[in-house]
């Protein structure tokens, strides 16, 4: 009897440890599903070039993450990329003339959307569009701009 008791206790301890470890791994280490349960509202923005922006990329204002990129699609009529942002409902007082820029975190980091608050008294609501946008910076374009400007400078000399 004593032996069954100790076996049962050892098994219980083991299963408890295992469950605890699984719980720790699924909740503490992953940081991606921050907004899955919370209420959100959707805002669209049109970009000429989104670079390598991915679905679920963070949307941040003043460096604080307030939402995620919900979807990225291409509009055939306007020939532009349509990005739908999902913003946490508790941040519902963002001016509707705020501008959205596609930025890069760190030198080689992933891209995210940075909002810059505007001065309007009206706020963004579900379904509204951000008109002031800034495209992703494509490094090849920068280099070619630099090279061309160098070339024209040489001619002037």
């Amino acid at each position: 009897m004593q032996q069954t008791r100790s076996i049962e206790m050892g098994t219980g301890l083991f299963v408890l440890l295992g469950m605890g470890a699984l719980f720790f791994l699924t909740t503490q280490i992953t940081g991606s599903n921050d907004f899955s349960g919370a209420k959100t509202y959707k805002v669209t923005a049109e970009f000429d070039n989104i670079g390598s922006l991915k679905i679920r990329a963070p949307v941040s204002i003043s460096g604080v993450t307030i939402g995620r990129v919900k979807s990225v699609s291409f509009d055939k009529e306007k020939l532009k990329a349509i990005v739908i942002l999902e913003i946490d409902s508790q941040y519902d007082q963002i001016p509707d003339d705020s501008d959205a820029a596609i930025l890069t975190s760190g030198l080689l980091g992933s891209q995210y959307i940075g909002l810059q608050a505007g001065g309007s008294l009206d706020s963004l609501v579900d379904g509204s569009e951000i008109y002031y946008v800034q495209d992703a910076i494509v490094i090849e374009n920068l280099i070619s701009k630099y090279l061309f400007s160098q070339g024209s400078k040489d001619k002037e000399d």
Partner: peptide
Amino acid sequence: ISMPMLTAIFCVLGL
């Protein structure tokens, strides 16, 4: 039954 739990424990101890 034991393997996934052992793996999870291994990972947590590794971290």
